[in-house]
Write a protein that binds this DNA or RNA. Structure first.
Lengths: 341, 341
DNA sequence: ACAATAAATGTTATCGGTTACATTGTTATC
DNA sequence: GATAACAATGTAACCGATAACATTTATTGT
């Protein structure tokens, strides 16, 4: 591998001139520029960017802590990040953390070992919770999707509470009185927010909130299936199920159909996220659309602002949601349907 | 940010001793080791890994060219890579290339600018096709999933031809005589291989291969939906559709159901990949399971072998597939079903 | 033609580690 | 007690680029 000195020797100039030819060509006379360019081509010289990064102290790397890349929603967020990062000359170091705190702490430390300039956290866990930070001003971290309640961290989120209320309102308007909810893990703020929105709307409609109609899930298809199974064996009056994401909704539908129930005639099901599969399921899923790519794009841009010192204080961006009504939700049945078959 | 010199000063030793304390502690006396350790803690010293990488010439970064992270199958492959890489101290630089050749060439060049040690390519395109290579021996690149026909590149793949033949055989055994196929993009070798396997099995069964029963798709849900639409309007004798991936199969099922067809009573549909959704679709999808995580893991391990100089020649690994029979395929209807409703 | 100024190019310290080699200190052997 | 052998530690070159500063060359004005 050739280096800048070999190029300088071959071109008969100094290393500074070679460097300038590449960085600020306007400072170099056309004649020498040509000589240098020719030498670069002749040697097939490529600058060692590791040396540049080391010297400049800027890596142009961003660590992204992804709970699981296997999630379709995150895949879209990643795409948005990728594009925004590439546009600004940054590379992403994607880490599939499986929601493990220790793993996230380890990888977040890459900004301390000069392997990355900043961190994007997609989960509501502060990987820097064990250290100082406060007096240091803004840490180079932004938080997207799940809201982390650290005031000094820029955040991109959805008003999950409002969105969940909108969905609940939709179900209430269809006449549903006994609505079950399949929740995400209790540790997730998303779950809390969406549950609060659910409660808000029930109260608004004068309906009673029942703890027994809340079922646990973990955002996977299988957990939706399992939760629906429990609903069938426990709650015989339910006419609608509000799932906190589309995967669980599709899993639940699978179980309900296996029990011979018709959707939405016998029971309505709604999701959250509007993943690609939602439109093609049977029936197509009523859900909340989130601007996933925009989440990623905004997160990266906020981070770059922080890195450039542009961000004076933590910005909190809230992106719009959209209620997408398809055919998995319909009017509540006139007569209670027997769920145990 | 403190550096090794400050640590050395505080501990009252030389920088070499500090370096040794971290790299080969057995060479340092317990007494000095303690002094150094204390100084490191006191200053909260973290070695600048960018400097280490620069000095050593090894980045421990691997560029992964992913056609699209939004694909559920690739998400699993990525997870496998992530784990294998972490175990060996490597980080992944994931790039969502959208199948763009120029983008892939650009990012693959990171190994020439010392930003990465090697490349994993998940698509059948050689990003180094424009340069020398041959005489250089093994380039630090491995190819997974889609087979790239460069003999000097280690590869992990499935015997797609055999797997497609197995699926076709399954359909033939159920009595299907007119089988349509929804293909991937013609540019993809996967498509060619699976088509050849399809032909093989038809020939084996003494059935005729019909060009008119081949329909184009691009591995997305929507393209499966659209292809099914064309099948309905053009081919009235088809009793089974073999889709080259699960997404297209699910898209096709959506369209067929919209036409009032029952699956598999009226028409059978099969997929390829066994993504998580396949099990929960209605009906559950008959498909080919691929060991996606193992693809990723094997790819990374092969690459690390190449990087360590262990690999003398290009290894070609072929992983096993599994035919998963669910309920989207069934006996061919006794009477031809009218597809145009 | 000559000083003053601007443009082009050169010299070299520097970033933060690693490591070959040099030096000093310690223990073992006869 | 002298010397060899080894352990512990120190010194300084080095990786490849950048950029502050120094120096040379070209241009301008009078």
């Amino acid at each position: 591998m050739s280096n800048i000195r070999e190029v300088a020797d071959l071109a008969g100039v100094s290393v500074a001139t070679v460097s300038r030819t590449l960085q600020q060509p306007e400072l170099v006379s056309p004649k020498t520029r040509a000589k240098v360019t020719r030498a670069i081509e002749q040697l097939n010289y490529k600058p060692n960017l590791m040396a540049v990064k080391f010297r400049s102290g800027k890596t142009h790397n961003i660590v992204v802590l992804v709970p699981t890349v296997a999630n379709v929603f995150f895949a879209r967020v990643i795409r948005g990040m990728q594009e925004a990062a590439a546009a600004e000359g940054y590379s992403l170091l994607l880490v599939n953390t499986m929601g493990d705190n220790a793993t996230e702490q380890n990888y977040a430390r890459m900004i301390h070992t000069s392997q990355a300039d900043g961190v994007v956290q997609l989960r509501a866990f502060n990987p820097f919770n064990d250290i100082d930070a406060d007096e240091q001003g803004l840490l180079p971290m932004v938080n997207a999707c799940e809201i982390l309640d650290t005031p000094q961290c820029p955040t991109v989120s959805l008003d999950n509470r409002l969105a969940a209320a909108a969905m609940t309102e939709h179900l209430v308007e269809l006449g549903h009185q006994h609505i079950a909810m399949i929740k995400g893990p209790a540790s997730s703020p998303l779950t809390r927010e969406r549950m609060l929105g659910f409660k808000d709307a029930l109260q608004e409609a004068g309906l009673k909130y029942c703890e027994e109609l809340m079922f646990d899930g973990d955002f996977t298809l299988q957990s939706g299936y399992d939760a629906a199974d429990r609903i069938l064996s426990q709650s015989h009056t339910v006419s609608a199920i509000f799932c906190e994401n589309d995967e669980m909704a599709l899993g639940a539908i699978s179980r309900l159909k296996a029990a011979g129930l018709r959707i939405p005639q016998d029971i309505s099901v709604s999701g959250f996220d509007n993943i690609a599969f939602a439109k093609f399921s049977d029936p197509p899923l009523t859900t909340i659309a989130q601007p996933a790519e925009e989440f990623g794009e905004t997160a990266i841009n906020l981070l770059i602002d922080v890195l450039k010192g542009k961000a004076k204080r933590a910005v909190k961006v809230i992106l719009p949601y959209q209620l997408i009504i398809r055919n998995s939700t319909g009017p509540a049945p006139a007569q209670p349907v027997n769920l145990t078959r």
